[in-house]
């Protein structure tokens, strides 16, 4: 079980929660279960969400494991120049 912090507008879609607990071993499973439990998040996941694991931001490595006790933070997927 990992605790996932959602950024402001994402939290509003997840029923006003800023944190949710999900049983997930990696980013792929996290997104799948988030979409199952909070269907409103699915379009955001499709558009792209980045996951910060203990401060390191992952945008595409959906196989990245979510270590027990790690800080998991969802962020919008941003572009650079």
């Amino acid at each position: 079980m990992v605790e996932v912090t959602l950024w402001g507008s994402l939290g509003a879609i997840a029923g006003g929660k800023s944190k949710v607990e999900i049983e997930a071993k990696d980013i792929r499973e996290l997104f799948r279960k988030l979409a199952e439990q909070y269907p409103g998040l699915e379009p955001y996941i499709d558009r792209g969400i980045a996951v910060a694991i203990d401060g390191t931001i992952y945008r595409d490595t959906w196989s990245k494991e979510l270590p027990e006790g790690a800080e998991i933070f969802l962020l919008p997927r941003l572009a650079g120049g």
């Binding site: 910060a52 203990d54 933070f73 962020l75």
Partner: peptide, 9 residues
């Protein structure tokens, strides 16, 4: 804790 959320490495 960064102002945008996660804790820095």
């Amino acid at each position: 804790r960064s102002s945008y959320g996660p804790v820095y490495g």
